[in-house]
Structures are given as structure tokens and as C-alpha cells.
Design a protein around this nucleic acid. Structure first.
Length: 299
DNA sequence: CCCCAGGCCTGTT
DNA sequence: AACAGGCATGGG
């Protein structure tokens, strides 16, 4: 038994349009193409590449179509469904967040403006780590360029109807890549070294997503990740938020978060780390959602 | 030439 | 623990 498409039921609140708007924010995004009605993406399912399109007629169910290739075996469908649920954080109940927001002068405008937006995930650990690393202390425009160069240089690609679709490279792909080669893509030496180190750790099994997910608390995850030179607190929290589904992650040193809070509160300076912690103490468990929504106010 | 950007490391208090 | 300075890289 096999299928060339299937549906996933959606939680409430969920707004696919909000997610698409987020995903369409960069004109040089290289890992998928988002339009006003859906998103196309090349994914690895099992050992093969699959080109899929996601769309939503209403917000009750998401349609997943295979754009070409053999139908999916049931096992493959399950794997793909798992990926998509992580991608759009479909297993989370946002009702408590909406309740928390009601009557909250800081939260309500966010919850209302971005109603139904999910923390869009990066389920692949290597991709999430690399995206965080290239995004350290550079503006987003440049971060997207670096991701694009890494992907075009080292990732697999497939053509479809005149467009090119790409997979983010695997850690194994970097086994014989040198720091100088990555530096030629305009990565700093530190970033190049860190990416190669992360790739090596993942290839030899020292660093695995499943293992991070079994650690007892967020602090253990931070500790494991920051043990790698070049991965600091910001990157660890970013990965917890975008890859591990940990919605208590609060990237306190994030300049975007600081600027967004400054604007929201009408401050004449960026909030201090202490002030940010104090502010977020009111909303335990929703740090990542609030951060993600705050980032959305910036663009 | 300036300041800024979804930081990190190392060394001091 | 918390802060300060240096560092590397492009964008505006």
C-alpha cells in the first residue's frame, strides 16, 4: 500500500498564511520556495529524495502532495508526517498561550497580530546548528547568503519544472572539507572551524538529536552544546527553540529580541539581560513563542 | 569612515 | 556570576 499524498489534521489555533509569510521573508531562501498558497521543498525521506508541496485549503487540515516520483510507502509517509509536525510545531496546544495573552498589554498585541503563527522549526539538527552558527553576529541578509553558499556548494539538488530544489548538506559531506575552503565562502575562521567540528561530532555519533531530546533538562542541553567551541549560549538556545521543540528557550543575548522589546516598551535603550529575564518571568513555558513573535515585529 | 548585526572567547572583577 | 574588550565579516 502506498500513497502520493496525504493530509495532516491541524490544531487550533493554526494559520498557515502566517507561517508562509514568515517563510517568505527572505528572497534568497534556498531550502524551499514559499508562495501565497503553499510551500515546495525537497526532503530526504528514508534514503531517497522527495519533492513535496504543502498547502491548506482551510486551517483544519494540511495537504501534502508528492510532486513527482514513486508513491510513499507507509513507513515513509510516517517519517514525512513526523518531519512536518516538527516543522510547524503541530503537536503544541496554543490555547493556553491565547488565554495567557488575554488582558496582557504586552502579549495581547503579539498574539493578535500573529494569531495562529507557529514557531517554524528546523527539525534537522545539523541544518539548525549551521543556520545558528552562520547567523552569529551578522545581519540576516548576510546569514542567508552564507547558508545559500553552503547549500549550493555542498548540498544535493534536484530540478523540477524549471526550478532548482536543494537539500541542506549532510554532516558527512564535510568530512574532507577544510577550514580554508569554508573561509572562501566568507565564513569567518571560527565559524568554519565550528561547522567542521559539529559535522565531525555528528558523523561519528557523538552528537545526535535523539540523544539531546532524552537529556533531563534544558540546562543539560545547553551544557552539551556549549561544550563545542564556537557554540555559545545564544546558539544553544536557538537550537533548543528551532530544532528540539523546547519552548522555554530564551536567547537572552539576541540583539533582535532586545531591539523588539525596546520598541514594544518604548525604551530609549536596549533592555539589559536582567530586565529581559524579569520581563519573561511572567510567562514561563512560552519564552520561545514570545521571542519568535517579537522577531516578527522587526520585519 | 561610521555604526550595526538573531555572538563567541578570553580575561578581569 | 557578571562585565569588558577584542575579534571577524558584510550591510547600509
Amino acid at each position: 500500500m502506498s500513497v502520493s499524498g496525504f493530509e495532516l489534521p491541524l490544531p487550533s489555533p493554526f494559520d498557515f498564511q502566517q507561517c508562509l509569510k514568515y517563510m517568505a521573508r527572505s528572497p534568497i531562501e534556498c531550502l524551499y520556495t514559499a508562495d501565497s498558497e503553499g510551500v515546495n521543498r525537497l526532503l530526504r525521506v528514508g534514503t531517497s529524495q522527495r519533492l513535496i508541496r504543502l498547502s491548506c485549503r482551510n486551517n483544519n487540515a494540511m495537504q501534502i502532495q508528492l510532486l513527482r516520483g514513486d508513491a510513499l510507502a507507509i513507513r515513509e509517509q510516517e517519517e514525512l508526517a513526523r518531519y512536518i509536525r516538527d516543522w510547524f510545531d503541530l503537536d503544541r496546544d496554543l490555547e493556553p498561550f491565547m488565554q495567557l495573552s488575554k488582558g496582557d498589554p504586552f502579549l495581547w498585541p503579539l498574539a493578535e497580530s500573529f494569531y495562529g503563527l507557529r514557531v517554524v522549526g528546523i527539525p534537522d539538527l545539523f541544518e539548525a546548528l549551521c543556520w545558528a552558527i552562520v547567523g552569529q553576529q551578522v545581519n540576516l541578509t548576510f546569514a542567508y547568503k552564507l547558508k545559500q553558499r553552503l547549500t549550493e556548494q555542498y548540498g544535493e539538488a534536484a530540478e523540477w519544472e524549471g526550478g532548482t530544489y536543494r537539500l541542506f548538506p549532510t554532516p558527512e559531506r564535510f568530512a574532507n572539507v577544510t577550514i580554508d575552503q569554508l573561509c572562501s565562502l566568507q565564513l569567518t575562521r571560527n565559524k568554519a572551524r565550528t561547522i567542521i567540528e559539529v559535522a565531525s561530532c555528528m558523523t561519528n555519533g557523538d552528537l545526535r538529536r535523539e540523544e539531546l531530546l532524552t537529556l533531563p533538562d534544558p540546562e543539560s542541553v545547553d551544557k552539551r552544546l556549549t561544550a563545542i567551541k564556537g557554540i555559545g549560549p545564544w546558539t544553544a538556545q536557538y537550537v533548543r527553540m528551532r530544532c528540539l521543540g523546547d519552548q522555554t528557550a530564551l536567547p537572552i543575548g539576541d540583539v533582535g529580541l532586545q531591539n523588539a522589546v525596546k520598541q514594544m516598551l518604548g525604551l530609549d535603550r536596549k533592555p539589559t539581560p536582567r530586565e529581559l529575564r524579569d520581563l519573561f518571568e511572567q510567562w514561563p513555558g512560552w519564552e520561545s513563542y514570545i521571542t519568535f513573535y517579537l522577531w516578527r515585529t522587526l520585519y
